[in-house]
Amino acid sequence: MRIEYLAWRIFYSLLAFVISVTLSFVLLHAMPGDYLHVILPHLAEKNPLATELFREQFGLDKSLFEQYVLYVLNVLQGNWGYSIQYGLPVTEVILEKLSWTAVILLPATLLSIFIGVLIGSYSGWTSGSLGDSFIFKIMIFLGAVPSYWWAIFLILVLGFYLDLFPLGGYMSITALDEGMKLHDVLYHAALPIVALTLTTVPGVYYLMRNSMLMIVGQDYILAARSKGLSEIEILLRHALKNAMLPMITLFAMELAHVIMGSIFIETIFSWPGMGFLTFEALRVRDLPLLQGIFLMDTLIIILANIAADFSYPLIDPRAKVGEIG
């Protein structure tokens, strides 16, 4: 049963991956303009030979179908192509930027999950109380403000007026002499992390509050009260574990988003991560790189989903992977 389930799971994941490859290939090639026209519009006009050489070099002279087949075959063998813009293998470029994105997105995601679960469960547990309605209103406000507004606001107030944090970038100019320092990077990462946390907390909060609201009225909570447990013991031992169930999928998805980066935040803070990379690749029509970024997203989301499925039984004994579905 388990083996069979696993086989199906892998098959469907592969199917999803291939469909995603095809879709992004078609969509990207349907986009007007190409690298040459963006970067070297005059060269293309003046020297048709250079254009031709370029097309030949990157295999752009072949038919679209031929390009697609070659691409899929290469991807399945682990060759994701070369970035036109960087002249480097796509995977190499992505992995480098990915680590920079992780520097701001991992702390921000963990922080927002921690804060969201904490205040969300408090809010749900004491629903209707003064504290709950206060937090709830604040969260509506936070959720309504877009991420780039926070980024601009933080740069303006904390960076420009108060001069407490750098306006952007990922290390100081002194790094040229002294080399990269961890505290310097973290200093630059602080504002993007805060901006990201502020925008992701409300989602986690709403789901957690809702989930907790469903638990509060359950009979086993009443049973726990009848045992003489204190409210905090009931919350921690009986309610939290049940309320966390719907959160697992959210966590998996949040972590999957880590790799996509945040285009707004990274662009505004000039942070050299995946979001910034995507934005740049799109601007100059670096198709192989864009394609690679989308593939990476697909891959991570598929893996995160599998991870979520397999972590359910760890919390809920009723869910046994491979026996349901």
Binding site: D219, Y220, L222, A223, N242, D316, R318
Partner: peptide, 11 residues
Amino acid sequence: LQNPTTSLNPV
């Protein structure tokens, strides 16, 4: 409590 199915904590 009545209803043991819902009064026991499932996890």
